[in-house]
Design a protein around this nucleic acid. Structure first.
Length: 127
RNA sequence: CGAGUAAAUCGCCUUAUCGCUCGGGUUUUAUAUCUGGGAGGAAAGUCCGAACACCAUAGUGCAAUAUAGUGGUUAAUGGCCACCAGCCGAAAGGCUAGGACAAGUGCAACAGAAAGAAUGUACAGGUAAUGCUGUAGUGAAACCAGGUAAACUCUAUGUGGUGCAAUGCUAUGUAAACCAGUGCUUGAAGGCGGCACGCUUGAUGCUGGAGGGUAAGCAGCUAAAGUGUAUUGGUAACAAUGCACUCAGAUAAAUGAUAAGGGCUUUUUUUAGGAAAAGUACAGAAUUCGGCUUAUAGAUUUACUUUUUAA
RNA sequence: GGUGUCGUGGCCGAGUGGCUAGGCUCAGCUCUGCAAAAGCUGCUACAGCGGUUCGAAUCCGCUCGACACCU
């Protein structure tokens, strides 16, 4: 896996997203929250991910864009380490539930914690 | 110099690494790689005006609604420009929904004799006599006429509706299926701007129930009332002509992240060199334009005013 | 992206341009041995900024916020 995050790796289908929120499970590492659901994709991509920030906590579009960009950036840099040995394929949605504007380093550490929690949950489910 | 007024402009830069997105080329159709482009003055609010698209855009009457000095400007406007008038300011200058109450209807709390079909206080003047006349007092407005239309209204001028989630095409699924009601020339239900008249379409229909599918792609989608500049006409808004340029097109939604260096501002320190710290606004395209309004750290330019105060 | 509706004390909610009703809550007092109930008294409001007007919650404009609808 490379440090990429292009169109194919983004979660775009409206239908899938609705299914994800109704049936999916979640892990959280404040201020992040990951909703996931095992899914099979037609185009052979292992993981599709979307990001989201609430309009309630951040009024202006500039702030929301900034946080989403940081989330995408930290996802891009950290996904290789954690998902290389993933067996099933998943749909992800990462939500920002905090109220303060984060920095990249904060975001990265939280993202790592989130993924560690996630892989722990997965292995427990198998056992 | 300070204080102020008006108009206009800019609103961080450079390099490297890792990414995102659109167009083009090569290779392959999984991709890989090369190359070019990639937020704003307000992209915002959606307050006006248009372009464009659809609604099968006959007509008459009644409603509804917008604007309001005069002239000009424009594709158009409720915008803009010039002039007049009124108000504010010492001035430069700013603000103004700025028609009509002698067409009709309404409204005017409290106070006051009295705010329209009702009557009189004090003082002064005057008379044969009397609110007959003036002043005071109340009030935003008062001696008999007025005020108020961002009150109804009248006058003049104008106005179809819905918005790119418009609209067209393709794909998937089944079902022109089932149940109940209603209707088929004795007319259900629509269309013609809101209502009425009138006109018109009209039956495999319309309404409800239960149930099924999609919620995806393409076009619309960016070369235009375009941008820059010069000249000419016009007091100006603006117009005409010449030359040059091509400048985002995403769709769970790209335009980013990090590092280093440099600008700029403030503070501290230092003896005029520098050093350190902090800060570097408002804010993110979504069919496209012309305005208006609102937010905005800081910087620059031009023109003008100057009562006071200092020189 | 577009269209529309609304904003009055802590909560609900009425209001012709002329002193912003009423109920619930809260606080104090009366009553009680103490509470509850009841009674009396009080507190806190027109989303913000301008304009029209003698006077604005009300009329007009702008701004802010909340909610609903259109695929």
């Amino acid at each position: 896996m490379k440090f990429t995050f292009n169109q194919k790796e983004k979660l775009k289908s409206k239908k899938l997203i609705e299914q994800l929120f109704t049936e999916g499970k979640s892990v959280s590492a404040f201020p992040l929250r990951l909703v996931y659901l095992p899914t099979i994709f037609d185009d052979g991509v292992l993981v599709k991910t979307g990001v989201s920030v609430s309009k309630r906590h951040f009024k202006t579009a500039v702030d929301r864009n900034r946080i989403k960009r940081l989330m995408r950036e930290s996802y891009r840099l950290n996904k290789a380490v954690h998902f290389n040995n993933l067996t099933a394929s998943y749909a992800f949605m990462i939500l920002y539930i905090g109220k303060e504007k984060p920095t990249l380093t904060e975001m990265q550490t939280r993202m790592k914690q989130l993924f560690e929690k996630f892989s722990k949950n997965i292995s427990e489910e198998k056992n």
